[in-house]
């Protein structure tokens, strides 16, 4: 006979866990909505930026700016975006797995694949594996600001122009919907302009002060915007993943409570029956 008190305690503990997961789900849902909103707000800016950049790049030589220049890649940097906190399903695991695979495949192809890590989970993961790390950034996902993206982007740009790294990729969770995220690789540097058809590319602009000036101004900003975008996508995915994970945890807890309650009632019934038998037996014996 299972101990009644044990089962009762168990139910109480599952119930309080459920309350926590339910609260976390609600918090994630609110944060998710905010993150989604931030992506939508950012979209017009980054789309326009790419458009202007592409039409500028079309009018200038490819070697006009170091950020456009393709060189023979020897050191390839991978920027890995994870979260600072766990409890968000396979969110971090899938990015880390993809990064690990990239490392394995590319380390024979290139001289070195240094990593740039964003988020505590990536830092912890690769610290144990002794991977070469050129930079890291943690504790920022409470609220992603443009300034933060700028700091990372400038650091990466500086290393790129110093020829410390020749090619830069980002790997992050791209947000599809609240329920689904997808791990994507994106090339950050050198910047690849959108192919524009010179015939249809509508307007012939006057550039003020000059095309070179505009290109110099736009290119680093474009990198910053891309970085910001990746951060936003990753944050939205994180909250979405946590929301889903906490939702299923809450459902599992409900199921568990139902099972335990059934068990509890059975045990209680059994105890009553046994007691009754004892009393009846006792009375019989007294006769």
């Amino acid at each position: 006979m299972a101990n009644l008190k044990d089962i009762r305690n168990r139910i109480a503990s599952v119930r309080s866990t459920q309350q926590i997961t339910k609260a976390m789900k609600m918090v994630s849902a609110a944060k998710f909505r905010r993150a989604e909103e931030a992506i939508l707000q950012n979209r017009p800016y980054s789309d326009k930026m790419l458009e202007v950049l592409s039409s500028l790049a079309l009018r200038t030589e490819e070697e006009a700016h170091p950020l456009l220049e393709r060189r023979d890649p020897r050191r390839v940097c991978l920027i890995v975006f994870t979260s600072d906190r766990g409890l968000c399903g396979s969110f971090n695991a899938s990015v880390l797995r993809a990064a690990e695979r990239f490392l394995r495949e590319k380390s024979s192809e290139y001289e070195a694949v240094p990593l740039y890590l964003v988020g505590k989970k990536a830092v912890d993961y690769f610290r144990r594996r002794n991977a070469e790390t050129i930079g890291q950034k943690t504790e920022m996902f409470g609220k992603v600001t443009y300034g933060e993206a700028q700091t990372i982007a400038r650091d990466v740009i500086e290393r790129y122009t110093n020829r410390e790294i020749d090619l830069v990729y980002m790997v992050y969770n791209e947000f599809r919907s609240a329920l689904s995220q997808q791990v994507v690789f994106d090339r950050l540097l050198p910047v690849e302009p959108m192919p524009v058809d010179p015939e249809t590319s509508t307007t012939e602009y006057i550039y003020e002060p000059s095309e070179e000036y505009m290109l110099n101004w736009v290119l680093p900003r474009y990198v910053e915007v891309r970085m910001f975008r990746a951060l936003l996508e990753s944050t939205a995915s994180e909250h979405g993943a946590r929301m889903t994970a906490m939702d299923s945890a809450t459902n599992n807890a409900t199921e568990m409570i139902a099972r335990l309650t059934l068990k509890y009632n059975r045990a209680r019934q059994e105890a009553i029956t046994t007691e009754l038998m004892d009393i009846v037996n006792g009375v019989e014996a007294m006769r």
Partner: peptide, 13 residues
């Protein structure tokens, strides 16, 4: 600079 309808296309910092 000022822009009124029908301005010549240009791009400026």
């Amino acid at each position: 600079f000022g822009v009124l309808p029908g301005h010549t296309p240009f791009l400026t910092a």
